[in-house]
Design a protein around this nucleic acid. Structure first.
Ligand SMILES: [Mn+2]
Ligand SMILES: [Mn+2]
Ligand SMILES: [Mn+2]
Ligand SMILES: [Mn+2]
Lengths: 217, 217
DNA sequence: ATTTAAATTTAGACAAAACTAAAAATAATT
DNA sequence: AATTATTTTTAGTTTTGTCTAAATTTAAAT
């Protein structure tokens, strides 16, 4: 149907457009895709010809309905494969991303519907991100960044914003994991760092950490 | 490491060189790869530059030791994925090939070693073909084509030569499956067709069938 | 309102992997 | 041995996705 490159662009546009209502800029896409702006312009034109995006020169790019659907299909596959790798193949959550980046492009409806069934229809991937169903629907959880909580508030860790291997390994080392209860014990005004209670442990974490952890109150 | 196309060529050369000790001809490779002879020449030169094959103009192509190793790695992945699809995702043996053709190119050592473990180190794929281990070693079963058996001889069905969906569906329809015992009851001299007893069933099969079934006596 | 800076697009080139058409080498026939 | 047929290679294009360098447009700063 679509090339590897086209699929990756659609996914990147999807992720970038979440942050604002404006069109996705050429430079932002180039950064996300690790390529040059000129290459982005070329590809965006092609996607526009295929009616996957809406694009006007210098105005940024928007996903069309069919582009959005295609992006969600790839995201669904990516996240299902991540679940498979963690649940069945003993991968840890910091190891799955690159492999899922490849697996998400395998073309087979049956493969993905059977995988979904095999995994017992998971609702979230190992990083807490929602898995769209076959129709592209998914529930957006009402979650808050840990950095937005005040002293005394508590909730459950339901997701991470930064999914880099480095950050995830830091969390592992400090026994910070999905599903655990976190309470803000104190916040330092100077640098915004927090003292948090996470189950039996109590530790101080920087804003780089608190701004990348999602809490459900 | 290697491109999709390079990997597919190596695999094709591996499969073609099994049949004879001579080099694999350009035309044979073109046929196998569903492409033109001129494209094959180009690619073979590239593989030769990378020391994956030994190639002299007009003399056919041979896999080098490193080319052979690479081919076996891909075949290992292909067959492990086929087992996964059949054993875990309810695919039938005639549905797995195309998907495995894509999955075999996913690059991750851990993925494949964990998949191997998850499947409990299978020795053969759903078509009876041996699965090389991580070192590329595998046992070649001593098997005979059903067409080479004589009346009265019997053995176990251990593999199929033709793995096309059409042939496999024919076998399913007639309850001919891996592991079953087959006995040759009679052979028609005119067209070579055989009357075979397979467990409870008795049926007549053509040479197109008998020449594509492997038996272990 | 100009000027300067930043973002974006165009023009031209390149590598990978394919193709067609023509040339060259090898194999098969007379 | 000479001719013909087949196989294989070369030469020249094409497509996809990328790049650099230059031109253009938009945004920011005097
Ligand atoms: Mn991921
Ligand atoms: Mn994820
Ligand atoms: Mn196969
Ligand atoms: Mn097989």
């Amino acid at each position: 149907m679509f090339s590897l490159s086209e699929e990756n662009y659609l996914k990147a546009i999807f992720h970038l457009q979440k942050h604002s209502t404006a069109g996705v800029s050429t430079n932002a896409l180039a950064e996300e895709m690790q390529t040059k702006a000129s290459s982005v312009t070329d590809m965006v034109k092609k996607l526009s010809d295929k009616k996957l995006v809406v694009y006007k020169k210098y105005q940024g790019v928007y996903l069309s309905e069919s582009g959005r659907k295609t992006a969600l299909k790839i995201i669904r596959k990516h996240r299902l494969w991540e679940v498979f790798l963690v649940e069945k193949l003993n991968f840890s959550w910091d190891e799955v991303h690159d492999v899922a980046e490849e697996l998400e492009h395998i073309k087979s409806e049956k493969l993905i519907s059977e995988l979904d069934k095999f995994l017992d229809y998971p609702k979230r991937d190992p990083h807490g991100d929602p898995i769209p169903d076959a129709q592209g629907d998914f529930q957006v959880a009402n979650k808050t960044l840990l950095s937005d909580l005040s002293t005394g508030e508590k909730g459950t860790l339901v997701g991470v914003k930064d999914t880099s291997s480095e950050f995830l390994k830091y969390l592992d080392k400090n026994k910070i994991a999905l599903g655990k209860t976190i309470e803000v014990m104190d916040q330092e005004k100077f640098d915004g760092s927090m003292l948090i209670q996470i189950e039996k442990n109590r530790l101080r974490v920087s804003t780089q950490v608190t701004a990348n952890i999602y809490i459900k109150i």
